[in-house]
């Protein structure tokens, strides 16, 4: 892994136990993200795109979950090998590999508590459900500023007043119409689009070096979607933050992403630059062409 890579995933394998036996959801996925880059992960539902990013975030709760591979996360020049000790938590039982879930969770928490928020953070699909329903939006932004400040020395921390002001600034940065009013509103008083803006503010206020956006525009209507995508692009550039953007919408992908990986059935089919995807659509993998065709984008470049 070079100095210039933020996240490097090698041969990631994720399995789950279901009533019908063990299912491999992610099967040998590899990709990497450089600072400031936007990597898009494209694929249908169930292709394992969310699972791969949840594995990087350390949020997979199920059993057994992550079973193999390497995830290297770079935080301010230091590289953390997140899955380095994983094999010592896996034992053999009746011919099946089995993981000591509790010990692994503890170990992973000890590793991730320094990285959550600072190195990597996430925004989720459903904006309403990813904001705390019982706290005002402003308080939530302020809380993530507080969490960020708590990593610093006591002398360098911002005081309460400054944190409130910064929270208001963040609400203005995500182009809320009336930040002072929104600051004191609860999530149920806001529209879906406003909730997603608030969520972006909460996530970026942590100042992460990489943001995982897991289908942030699903469930929003077309005009709001466009606004959110533009907003994300502007903010990512302004904050010099890398982004892992997950979607099944190829148009958003072409607009936002620098590089795109296409996933299906837990495997990476191909890895292309967004430009290639646009210009040389017919040289792409069969499945990618199906996706492009579904969005009505192949014919346009053919003629």
């Amino acid at each position: 892994m070079s100095e210039q890579t933020l996240v490097d995933v090698q041969d990631l394998v994720i399995e789950f136990d279901t009533p019908k036996g063990r299912v491999r959801v992610v099967d040998g996925v590899s990709f990497s993200v450089s600072p400031g880059e936007v990597l898009g992960i494209l694929g249908e539902s169930g292709s394992g795109k969310t699972m791969s990013t949840q594995a990087i975030l350390g949020l997979i709760g199920g059993y057994p979950g992550v079973m193999g591979g390497q995830i290297n996360l770079n935080d301010q020049g230091v590289t953390y090998e997140l899955l380095k000790d994983l094999p010592s938590f896996i034992s053999e039982r009746r011919g099946q590999p089995e993981k000591n879930e509790r010990a692994w969770r503890k170990h992973r928490y000890a590793q991730m508590k320094k990285l959550w928020g600072r190195a990597i953070t996430s925004i989720f699909q459903n904006p309403r459900r990813s904001l705390d329903p019982l706290m005002t939006v402003g308080q939530q932004v302020k809380e993530s500023i507080q969490a960020r400040e708590s990593h610093k020395d006591a002398l360098e921390r911002l005081n309460d007043q400054a944190q409130t002001e910064e929270a208001l600034e963040w609400l203005a940065k995500v182009q809320m119409v009336d930040p002072a009013r929104v600051y004191h509103s609860y999530p149920h008083e806001l529209s879906g689009g406003m909730c997603q803006r608030a969520m972006i503010a909460v996530a970026l206020a942590c100042k992460p070096s990489i943001l995982v956006a897991d289908e942030p525009t699903t469930g929003l209507d077309a005009t709001v979607r466009a606004q959110i995508v533009h907003l994300l692009q502007d903010l990512i550039k302004a904050e010099q933050c890398a982004m892992l953007y997950i979607t099944h919408d190829i148009r958003e992908m072409l607009y936002l992403a620098d590089r795109v990986i296409v996933m299906r059935h837990g495997k990476v089919l191909e890895q292309v630059s967004a430009n290639d995807l646009k210009e040389h659509a017919l040289e792409r993998h069969e499945y990618t062409q199906v996706l492009l065709d579904a969005a009505g984008m192949i014919g346009a470049h053919d003629e």
């Binding site: 904001l131 990593h151 969520m199």
Partner: peptide, 16 residues
């Protein structure tokens, strides 16, 4: 524990 926003709190680095 399974709610999105609790996961989001975890991902933003709040103390458990």
């Amino acid at each position: 524990g399974a709610e999105d926003y609790i996961l989001a709190h975890v991902a933003h680095g709040f103390h458990p």
